[in-house]
Amino acid sequence: MSVTIKDVAKKANVAPSTVSRVISDSSRISEKTKRKVRKVMEEMGYHLNINGRVLVRQSTQTIGIVMKNSSSHSLHNPFFFEVLRGISNVCHEHQYSINLTTGDSEEAIFQDVVHMVQGKRVDGIVVLYSKEDDKVVPYLQEQNFPFVMIGKPLLYSGNIMYVDNDNVQASKEVTDFLFQRGHRNIGFVGGDFHFEVTNARLSGYQLSLMEHGREKREEWIKHMELDNQDANKVVAELLDLPNRPSALVITDDYQALSIMQALQSKGITVPDDISIVCFNDTIISKLSNPSMTTVDTQSYQLGYASASSLIELLTNEEMMKRSIIIPTNIIERDSSTRLNNPVG
Rank of each mutant, 00 (worst) to 15 (best):
F80T: 07
S323V: 03
R53L: 11
V197D: 13
S299W: 08
V90Y: 11
P242N: 13
K32G: 01
V295K: 01
V137F: 14
M44R: 02
K10L: 12
A305V: 09
A108N: 05
L339T: 12
A236R: 11
V235P: 03
S299C: 13
S70M: 05
D230W: 08
Q58F: 07
L310P: 02
T4Y: 03
V127Y: 05
N289Q: 02
E42I: 05
R338W: 08
V117W: 11
K32H: 02
D253H: 03
D296I: 09
D281F: 07
I268E: 14
K286M: 10
Q229D: 15
D272M: 13
E43F: 06
E225T: 13
E219G: 09
A256K: 05
P290H: 11
V40H: 08
D334K: 00
I109P: 03
R53T: 13
S288E: 00
Y205M: 03
E196S: 04
S336P: 00
Q206I: 15
D123H: 01
N144P: 08
L209I: 02
L310K: 02
V122I: 04
S105V: 05
M224V: 11
N69M: 12
T102L: 15
P245M: 00
Y96M: 12
N341F: 06
E42M: 09
N228W: 09
M292N: 04
V277L: 04
D112R: 14
T269K: 14
A231L: 03
V8Q: 06
I23N: 00
V122H: 02
F147Q: 05
I268F: 14
P16A: 02
L263W: 07
T18Y: 03
L75S: 01
T18I: 10
G151P: 12
V249R: 03
R57V: 04
A9I: 12
T33S: 05
R35W: 00
L238I: 11
V40A: 09
F188D: 08
R121I: 06
S171V: 01
V19E: 13
G191R: 04
V3S: 02
N316V: 07
E93F: 12
K39V: 01
D112W: 15
K120G: 03
